[in-house]
């Protein structure tokens, strides 16, 4: 399995409750290849999450189209899975049952198979021993692991991640960045990963390709390839070339971030 995604001249306009229209995404083109980790970075309100939702099919495009393997996306499909910014775990389900949520709809799968899959991903995200805990009994980092495992359990060709580490404390966040690479293993599985963040360092550290977004209407200012081999260790962050890339992106985004702040 290996899919590719073409985003062609995609625009998105919203109507605010006040009647004001907001041009959130302003003509984006991209070509996403299998086995690649992409990041969207940009200031708050640059439409990066909106674009992620359009790729997923949760939102329709206003203009332009998004093709998955040549076919237009017009709704969520089982080969795409999303990791939300908030863990959005069902409070009445324990860890195993939350991880199972996405694969319960698959009628071709037996109950034993489902449990095996849950077990596998519980192991991968490091939650062995917490299977019967309810979400409120878990730390923020553990909740995000369940959130991730729920998406991975579907074994999607396209994994969409919307600022999954935004609510974590700084240390947990660093460790999760390192572990995420092992947990997803996109190179061998041929997955497309799209990771939305406004943390430049996080984007550079995780990605093969970083897309830098302008402020509203969001367009791609630059596409930057990160040359370091994966999986990477946190030490990469100290290398001069890494710092240089990070610096270049910041130079590019600083003005846009200022616009967002003044809004």
């Amino acid at each position: 399995m290996s899919s590719s995604i073409q985003v062609e001249q995609v625009h998105k306009t919203f109507m605010k409750p006040t009647g004001e229209t907001v041009h959130a995404v302003g003509g984006v083109d991209m070509d996403l290849r299998p086995g690649t980790f992409y990041s969207f970075v940009g200031p708050s309100g640059c439409g990066k999450t909106t674009l992620l939702h359009m790729i997923h099919g949760l939102l329709p495009t206003t203009r332009g189209r998004i093709l998955l393997d040549g076919e237009e996306v017009n709704g969520p499909t089982p080969n795409k899975a999303v990791v939300f910014q908030q863990a959005l775990l069902l409070p009445w389900r324990n860890v195993t049952d939350n991880i199972k949520f996405g694969i319960e709809n698959d009628r071709n799968m037996s109950a034993t198979e489902r449990l095996e899959i849950c077990d596998k991903y519980t192991q991968i995200v490091g939650l062995r021993g917490f299977e019967s805990h309810y979400p409120h009994e878990l730390s923020g980092g553990m909740q995000q692991r369940v959130n991730l495992a729920r998406a991975l359990a579907v074994n999607p060709e396209i994994l969409l991640m919307d600022e999954p580490f935004a609510s974590l404390d700084a240390q947990t966040r660093l460790l999760m960045q390192e572990e995420l690479q092992r947990m997803i293993d996109w190179k061998n599985s041929g997955k497309i990963v799209v990771f939305v963040t406004h943390d430049i360092e996080e984007a550079v550290f995780l990605s093969d390709v970083v897309f830098c977004f302008s402020f509203r209407p969001g367009t791609i200012m630059k596409e930057i390839k990160v040359p370091f081999p994966t999986p990477r260790t946190l030490r990469v962050k100290e290398e001069p070339e890494f710092l240089q890339i990070k610096h270049d992106i910041w130079e590019l985004l600083a003005d846009e971030a200022r616009k967002a702040m003044e809004e």
Partner: peptide, 16 residues
């Protein structure tokens, strides 16, 4: 709100 979005994101039926 959010939980409905979760359901939609994972493609579940109205009954589910």
């Amino acid at each position: 709100g959010e939980f409905r979005m979760l359901g939609r994101a994972f493609n579940i039926s109205f009954w589910s």
